[in-house]
Design a protein around this nucleic acid. Sequence first.
DNA 1: ATTATCTATAGATCTATAGATAATGC
DNA 2: ATTATCTATAGATCTATAGATAATGC
Lengths: 214, 214
Amino acid sequence: MLANKTERETPSCNKENDILRAAEREFLAKGFSGARTVSIAQAAGVTHAMLHYYFRTKEQLFERILDEKIQAMGQSVLAAFGQPRLPLVERIRDGVERHFDFIAANPDLPRFVVNEVFAHPERSLIMQQRISFVVERLIADLQVEMDATARRGEVEPIDVRTLLLDIVSLNIFPFIAFPIIEPIFGGQAADREQFFARRKQENVEVIMRRIKKQ
Amino acid sequence: MLANKTERETPSCNKENDILRAAEREFLAKGFSGARTVSIAQAAGVTHAMLHYYFRTKEQLFERILDEKIQAMGQSVLAAFGQPRLPLVERIRDGVERHFDFIAANPDLPRFVVNEVFAHPERSLIMQQRISFVVERLIADLQVEMDATARRGEVEPIDVRTLLLDIVSLNIFPFIAFPIIEPIFGGQAADREQFFARRKQENVEVIMRRIKKQ
DNA sequence: ATTATCTATAGATCTATAGATAATGC
DNA sequence: ATTATCTATAGATCTATAGATAATGC
């Protein structure tokens, strides 16, 4: 049936992919209930019937996107902190920055994932479990190094899960709340680039102070 | 009043308010596009026509709720930190805890406000400006005290806006992302109460270390 | 023979209103 | 006379599919 896509289909004339990319934009911007399949089809430059031909239902199309995005969120943490080449403190500083950069490059991602997982936790259960499984190993690995470093008196001992939640909270929230923050920061947030550059530095500062031995 | 047994007599007396309360629940849970006016009417125990009789449109009913909630978010910051009776460091510690408690008591509020403001920033512009105006005074006041305290060498100098964003990021994110966090924290988050009690302590710790003089 | 695409439309849902009727206040 | 409430339904969307037709691969 649809399983075997031929290799000579170039991206620009691959309608299935066009629909996926259009769906990605629409769903990320408006969420499941706000998105319209007609709009997606229109943005993809195909008739509405094609969307159903390839994905049967709005729900199925949505789940393709949601799974993709949940995975991306999980991967972002792995990619940011899974670099064992640096000593722990530098590894964490580097991780905060990498994770921040990823969110900066995908500012709509966290809101989307957070909302849709909240709206229907059962919808994404398998994907979530897969992510936690991988993240679990990263955490265990980091915790071992953390404990060792703390024993040498180089850092304040801390539960790695707790530290990671501090980091993602600080990194993600400013992006998802930017429209609210902007008027409060007034001129300071007028230059979006600069605002987030400072944010990144602040988050690194907060986390470094959190683990610093007192 | 023999007319007491008539069908039109309302048990809860104020249907307009019933609709508002039902709308609040529905909109907070599902957002504007996910909410259904029929469901709201049903939950309020009135016919669907009544909803339009009192509020004309879904949009107007929604804006009543959104304005209310934006104001509540702003007030929560004011109420938490607007207590000039304590010395600065204690005032901040107390503020972090008060703000956390408010979010804990209204866990759906931030997601709702953040989403809807993001989806239609123009819809809430007046309300946002009103909030920023009030918060602005709090910030100015706190900054004066912060600078004075820093001059005495009791804290590390910091921009108050930056510090407040650290605080609300740490306090709000764990609530809006809880369904994602839960499986990763596994057993540690099984007891929701305890998980958030620890979070509160962690957030206080992070912020105290952030302003501590080095 | 199968896959891709289009037009047209069914069917479901959802917002909103019209129009009738009862209650309330003056 | 005005306000509150109900029933019934219009009108607008939106998802999904049927059925015809073109393109592609064997």
